[in-house]
Design a protein around this nucleic acid. Structure first.
Lengths: 233, 233
DNA sequence: GTCTCCAAATTGGTTGGACCAGTGGACCTC
DNA sequence: GAGGTCCACTGGTCCAACCAATTTGGAGAC
């Protein structure tokens, strides 16, 4: 398990440079056709080597965000340096397995701990979250927030500051995949049933059953149909 | 116009390195999870600096094709290094304006030259191409090959080896956009009508009209609905 | 003999400096 | 003023070195 708890994405310098460039373009209100500062100046101002700046440039160029003119400077191709929505989706899809792996490791353990340590108050919080999600589904909503609330209640019941902290780090990535998962037909109701199984095991005080139920739940979250479509040729 | 006749893409070293890596992976039959040679070895074998190899690595990493493990090597994430079909589409979409610009410049001039220089044989070839496309559309086909045949006949009639050569360089890029354009509803018939206008002007010997008709045709090719879709948030 | 642990070799990450190659504008000539 | 020349600017590539994470293999403990 500890293998799965490694940092999800170690920071690469060129990515930070690219991020800074994104900010810069936004702050300065630059638009398509505008020129960005020369590589040497960027390297100097960001206090990194020109090599790192150039890697960031390559990354942005590959994403079709800037145009490089030998001897003439680097120019914006769009009004910002954010990847296209489609690219974002693709990137998230690629990261999904890794996120799921980490989430599976952590939440499975958290569920079993919760089964051992839960107090009456914990159970009440979990049940409240379940009820909220049930109500949301009946209103025809996806229950995104309520889903998150349930998982938060389980984490609280486990009383593992370290794992809880790790889940906090994951939370942003999880939030993005959660919405896409719940958007699939019948998924919210399905998710609720799985939550109930987890809750039952925690109530019973059965760590193994709780871990198993949570494992199944996390696995099913990764089953997202979106973007299996391929343009015909 | 001469501005539009600049090279479409000057070769950047890191792109060549990436291409070589693609070949290597294909030749060696490497698959997802396999490790590719160390950067230093690649630089040595390809006779380029490690800097260029690293830029290629960054480009491939951004496209989600390889995983970089600090100290551990670079690993394939897929069974090949070809960009995803979706990425290909996006890249082509980005290049479309540039291609269209060049194509507009060249084919407009070619059409007016054809109007001045066409022989009876040229007209016959052009008419034959028109008839072939008409037949293809009646068969319910897209008429991709016939479309290309028409443009080829016009180019031949213009008798400009230089421009013809330039069009040959463009042909691969044009072929890709042509299919996507013709796939749109009603587009083949629309395209045929535009071809006929060009042919008429060439037959009449009216260079200006031929250029105008061709210009309109090329512009309409660029109007591709595909990929204006954005995932909702 | 097997296991553990540590140090060296391997491999990616980053740096600074150097030089080459297009671009574009300042400047000079006519 | 028109034209051409030259040079500063900017991207393109290379090199040598060193840092940081991982892997590996052997020394030592059991």
């Amino acid at each position: 398990m500890s293998e799965s708890l490694r940092p999800l994405a170690r920071p690469r310098l060129y990515e930070q440079v690219a991020a800074r460039l994104r900010e810069y373009v936004a702050d300065q209100g630059l638009r398509a056709g505008d020129r960005i500062p020369p590589e040497r100046e960027l390297a100097d101002r960001l206090q990194v080597s020109r090599t790192s700046v150039r890697q960031a440039i390559v990354a942005l160029e590959v994403q079709g965000l800037i145009e490089v003119r030998h001897g003439g400077g680097n120019y914006l191709l769009r009004d910002h340096l954010e990847p296209e929505p489609m690219e974002n989706l693709l990137a998230r899809k690629r990261r999904l397995p890794e996120i799921l792996e980490a989430r599976d490791a952590a939440e499975t353990k958290l569920a079993s701990l919760a089964a051992e340590r839960r107090t009456a108050a914990d159970l009440a919080a979990i049940d409240a979250a379940l009820a909220a999600m049930r109500a949301a589904i009946e209103r025809g909503e996806l229950g995104v927030d309520e889903d998150e609330r349930f998982h938060g209640a389980v984490i609280a019941a486990a009383r593992s500051p370290l794992l809880a902290d790790f889940m906090t780090h994951l939370s942003r990535e999880i939030a993005e995949s959660r919405r896409e998962s719940l958007r699939q037909p019948g998924r919210p109701a399905n998710s609720l049933r799985q939550h109930e199984k987890v809750a039952d095991a925690i109530r019973t005080g059965d760590p193994t059953a709780a871990a198993t139920a949570m494992h199944h739940h996390v696995q099913s979250v990764g089953d997202v149909k979106l973007l299996n479509w391929t343009p015909e040729h």
